[in-house]
Amino acid sequence: MKRISVLSMGFAAVLALTAHAQSPDVPKLADVAGRYAITQSSRIGFTVGQVGGGGIKGVFGNFAGTFDLRADDLAHSAVSFELRPESVSTGQARIDNFLRSGAVFDTTHFDRISFRSARVEQTGRDTARIVGTLTAKGRSSSETFDVTLANRQGNRITFNVTGRIFRSRYGMDVGTPIYSNVVQFDMLINGQR
């Protein structure tokens, strides 16, 4: 479910660029337009809260994706992201194995989680919202990610992407209400043109 954020980042970048087109300190949209590959230096982090505070924090180490920033048509910029749920890591092997099992990701039968953007909406000077379809464990649902442009240098661009996913939509609601139904994604997406 974490792949979604990557897509969102791409959109955010597009938005940010458009927004900045008017001010002199902001990169011109034409400067940042292009097709970016999401690099391995990105961080796909997530948190699931638990009763009494604290919770499970983890990352996905194996992912890939691209985003297309369109100079002329921000709304049709596109993000495509995929991650391998077996690469989940929480620092607790027993929790990782539980997440990989049929109780949660069921990685034997569903080895990928994917996100495809449908549209991008600019929400601020350097922020955007990406709406798209998240597919996990054989179920697809529309999800929204918030993107903030974090950095841009030459052909590299970085976005912060956050999103709240209800795991019950993907048949992963084991452990509720001890563990929250909401998976909070907090991602740093690095793109390379």
Partner: peptide, 16 residues
């Protein structure tokens, strides 16, 4: 347990 799974008795009481 380092897993720190809460004991949420009958999904009502968070037992410390």
């Amino acid at each position: 347990s380092p897993l720190e799974i809460p004991t949420f008795a009958f999904n009502l009481i968070d037992v410390p």
